[in-house]
Amino acid sequence: MSTLLKLAGVETHIGQYHILYGVDFEVPEGGVTMLLGRNGAGKTTTLRTIMGLWQASKGTISFDGKDITRFATPDVARAGIAYVPENMSIFADLSVKENMILAAREGEMDDARLKWIFGFFPALEKFWLSAAGSLSGGQKQMLSIARAILEPRRLLLVDEPTKGLAPAIIGSLTDCFQELKKQKTTILLVEQNFAMAKALGDSVAVMDQGRIVHSGEMRELAEDNSLQTRLLGLSLDAHQ
């Protein structure tokens, strides 16, 4: 597969703090790349740097062969990259419908696409006119992801979508990502649920202390317990 996203020597400072130290990895087009690592390794900072929410202080970020390192966040989004942050970032005072309308670049939603989304997240249809702030945590996560995939995107960045969710909702999210994968949507996914990582991941990059310390096929990492323990501090089987 060709490379859709490439980070080369990316460093990020937040105020006086040096968070990323020369991050290098590639995201192949049409697959799911897992970005794994211990808490505080720099995974969220990496996603936010790609989106231009924090500016890289050094290095380059290339998307589809174009240097987007200095792009403002709206320009990154217009290039075809969608971002689902860990904190969901929905508009609590607006209805589910209004949140979705705001995600549509032309202000109009495609009915077929919306019906497809409801197939994975039926609660959104049920609470269509309800305030987003009244949804449960899992439903808010559904809404956050639905906003990001309302229109087809080249690349989807997702930060820990299953954190604190019930198994049934995790199953719906996994099904949704599997379907996006079949549609050749490229996904860069930060996730602590290793069962999901093994089910979805094609390739993997592992971070530690602001650096990439391992990259390769997800299957190889999933089959090597000693490598998992060395890189992540525990085996995947021990953390489902």
Rank of each mutant, 00 (worst) to 15 (best):
L4A: 12
L5C: 10
L7Q: 04
A8P: 00
V10H: 04
E11Q: 13
E11S: 15
T12H: 04
H13C: 08
H13Q: 14
I14E: 01
I14T: 07
G15H: 11
G15E: 09
I19V: 15
L20H: 06
Y21A: 03
G22E: 05
V23H: 01
V23R: 01
V23T: 05
F25H: 02
E29Q: 15
E29G: 04
G30R: 05
G30C: 11
V32T: 12
V32A: 04
V32K: 01
M34D: 00
L36H: 02
R38D: 07
A41G: 07
K43M: 11
T44F: 09
R48S: 09
R48E: 13
M51T: 14
G52K: 03
W54G: 00
W54C: 06
S57D: 05
K58T: 04
K58F: 03
G59F: 08
T60D: 10
T60L: 12
T60P: 00
S62H: 10
S62Q: 14
T69G: 06
T69R: 06
T69M: 07
T69Y: 04
T69H: 07
R70L: 14
F71P: 00
T73W: 02
P74A: 05
V76C: 09
A77Y: 05
A77S: 15
A79N: 08
I81L: 11
A82P: 02
N87F: 08
S89R: 15
F91P: 02
F91S: 06
L94E: 07
L94H: 05
K97S: 11
N99C: 13
I101Y: 10
G107F: 06
G107D: 13
E108R: 15
D110Y: 03
A112M: 11
L114M: 14
I117S: 00
I117W: 02
F118L: 06
L124Q: 03
A132I: 09
A132M: 10
A132E: 04
G137C: 13
G138I: 06
K140T: 02
Q141R: 15
Q141Y: 08
A148R: 05
L150Y: 03
E151G: 10
R153H: 14
L156I: 12
L156D: 01
L157R: 02
V158A: 04
V158G: 01
P161F: 04
K163M: 09
G164W: 11
A166V: 13
P167C: 12
A168C: 06
I170F: 04
G171P: 01
C176T: 13
F177K: 02
F177T: 02
E179A: 13
K182D: 13
Q183N: 12
Q183I: 07
Q183C: 07
K184M: 10
I187Q: 03
L188V: 08
L189R: 02
V190R: 01
N193I: 01
F194C: 06
A195S: 15
A195W: 03
A195Q: 13
A195I: 01
M196C: 07
A197Y: 01
V204N: 01
M207Q: 05
D208K: 14
G210I: 00
I212E: 00
I212K: 00
H214D: 09
S215R: 14
R219N: 10
L221E: 01
E223N: 14
D224G: 05
N225R: 15
Q228G: 02
Q228N: 08
S235G: 12
D237G: 08
A238Y: 04
H239L: 12
H239N: 12
H239I: 12
Q240V: 13
